[in-house]
């Protein structure tokens, strides 16, 4: 079996790096945690990697806005090499704070033909104006070509954020990400229907929970797949007995499988 190498990028305030590394390892990857200062010093490390993950946390305290300062740092020190990483056909995953970083660098939604260095979409304060930890159902969008998800499989994951509301600069951009398959995941109820709070927990436009770029090889999502890789992490595992699918693993397994088959 081919060796799949994944890099979990740390920075001041990132706090989901261990469990993200563990989830990648469970999926069969060789995963490594690395501080951004080290990667800036030795950017060539990325050449041996096939998956780059921006994990969750509060990078730099989310001062100014969630993910903003880390995005600024990535933009000025790693922007070109991350874009090359994507152009080389490799995978990038941003979870929660990592999703915020990907959006705030312009890497997502990564519309075809755009320069993708300026922001067209952002992730801002929840409508409730509060941090919120709850489990949500997510429906993959049928038009999405995102390689991380199973198109027909609704999944259940925990989320925990205060700034998760996805908004676009203009209605045209929203239309464009919608019609070009950039919406990877939507918040729905257990039957797959969209709705208001708490089904859409933060007021995101179009109930967007996750976005992919034009290649389908970049995924950013607010919920935390790395927090559901074992059955005892399900909030109702004591009721459900054996019948629990650990949905978080779908995303990591698909990533590893994609690398094995395509890179």
């Amino acid at each position: 079996m081919k060796q799949v190498n994944a890099l979990v990028l740390r920075a001041a305030g990132i706090n989901c790096d261990y469990e993200t590394q563990y989830a990648l390892e469970l999926a069969g990857a060789n995963a490594q945690r690395m501080h951004i200062n080290e990667l800036i010093k030795k950017p060539e490390i990325l050449e041996s990697m096939q998956i780059l993950v921006f994990p969750g946390g509060f990078s730099y305290g989310d001062d100014i806005a969630a993910g903003k300062i880390l995005a600024n740092q990535v933009q000025h020190h790693l922007g070109d090499i991350v874009r090359k990483f994507i152009d080389d056909g490799k995978l990038v995953l941003g979870i929660c704070n990592g999703f915020q970083v990907l959006v705030k660098t312009g890497i997502l939604p990564g519309l075809a033909g755009a320069d993708n260095k300026t922001q067209t979409v952002t992730i801002t304060n929840n409508d409730s104006a509060k941090f919120d930890d709850r489990w949500v159902y997510l429906q993959p969008s049928s038009s999405s070509k995102c390689v991380f998800i199973n198109k027909d499989q609704r999944i259940y994951l925990p989320m925990a954020h205060g700034e998760g509301k996805v908004v676009t600069k203009t209605p045209e951009i929203l239309e464009s990400i919608k019609s070009n398959g950039h919406i990877a995941l939507r918040y729905v109820d257990e039957n797959g229907n969209t709705g208001d709070f708490p089904i859409n927990p933060n007021g995101s436009m179009e109930s967007i929970a996750g976005l992919t770029d034009s290649t389908g090889r970049v995924l950013g999502l607010m919920p935390h797949p790395e927090r559901f890789v074992r059955k005892t992490q399900h909030p109702r595992w004591t009721r459900l007995g054996g019948e629990i699918s650990v949905d978080g693993m779908i995303i990591f397994n698909n990533a590893v499988k994609y690398v094995e088959e395509n890179l």
Binding site: Y18, G56, D132, D133, A160, H224
Partner: peptide, 11 residues
């Protein structure tokens, strides 16, 4: 109160 705390970080 409880939901304002992240009770699942660290997995």
């Amino acid at each position: 109160v409880i939901r304002q705390y992240d009770h699942e970080v660290q997995g």
